[in-house]
Amino acid sequence: MSGSSNLGMHVDHGIEEDPEKLAEFQATIDARTLIEPDDWMPAAYRTGMLRMAEHHANSEIIGALPEGEWITRAPSLRRKLALTAKVQDEIGHGQMLYRVSQDLGKSRDQMLRDLITGRTKYHNVFNYPAPTWGDIAMIQWLIDGAAIMNQKTLADGAYGPYVRTMKRINMEEAFHFKSGEDMVLTLMTGTSSQRAMGQEAFDRWWYPSIMFHGPPDKPNTLQSPAMRWRMKTETNDSLRRRFVNRFAPAALDLGLKIHVVTKDADGMVTSRKPDEKLRLNPDSGDWEFTEPDWEEFFRVIRGNGPCNKKRLALRRLSYVQGRWVRNAIVHGSTALPNGGGR
């Protein structure tokens, strides 16, 4: 479900590369020929792609945690089957992306350990709470919608293994998005309490989904190595504009009101008022809206969001709980866990 666009791309310019090789590399990318794992690549490109794929993989497996908790409480058997399938898909995406990362030079074991010890990060959007079924619907509609939008542009990138993985992932994301749209439509064409649940969840998720594509572009974004090397193919602001143009009118047609909200430390809405800047600009054809609170965005990235600790704690618990299984299959260990499973 994820994407990597809110990852800061720290490219190390300190390494001197052979200018001839560098020019050849750029020419290959400009000719839209894909780069394969053992082609020559600048050290900064290898590090950057590894960081991006690893961050993406981490996001897939952390992103499945809030959804997994709702499987037992899904409102119908069909929704339960669908959510189970979605969670299985997301973990599968994590597997594929860890494989891409491994070929760039870091072991999977190391990546899983870096995630639980907080040395590496995952997408910011998974640090928000999902207290109702309405949240599950909104996550699948808005966040998976934003993710497909982002991943379609990443599938047009330059690194072969990542591009192939994006294509396969997007195929599955289409199901996530469609079933999310179906859930949101069900809520918003339902009873008054269903519509209220939809609205409250929308209030919680609208701004995280606008922030999904990452912080505002810097003036020189188009010249950055990430864009020149086609690690990314569209800027954050451009993706965000397309996202709002698509989803704001759809939300309004569904009877949802678009609010500017304040939230407490647990991510629950404490006050809301209509977004007065929201309108379709007839000249540009784009929707205008109130900018997100970017300070909140950076606060959450630094680890102080509503669910940062909870998400990581669950991943750490799973890591510790699963250790005896991994030892059994990797090393043939027959040691059973203390207390029979915990």
Binding site: Q102, S107, R108, R113, T117, A313, N327
Partner: peptide
């Protein structure tokens, strides 16, 4: 879930 604060023991386990 109990929060496991600080470092948790994570020796290398080897890859598949």
């Amino acid at each position: 879930v109990e929060l496991v604060e600080g470092e948790i023991e994570s020796p290398a386990e080897g890859d598949f």
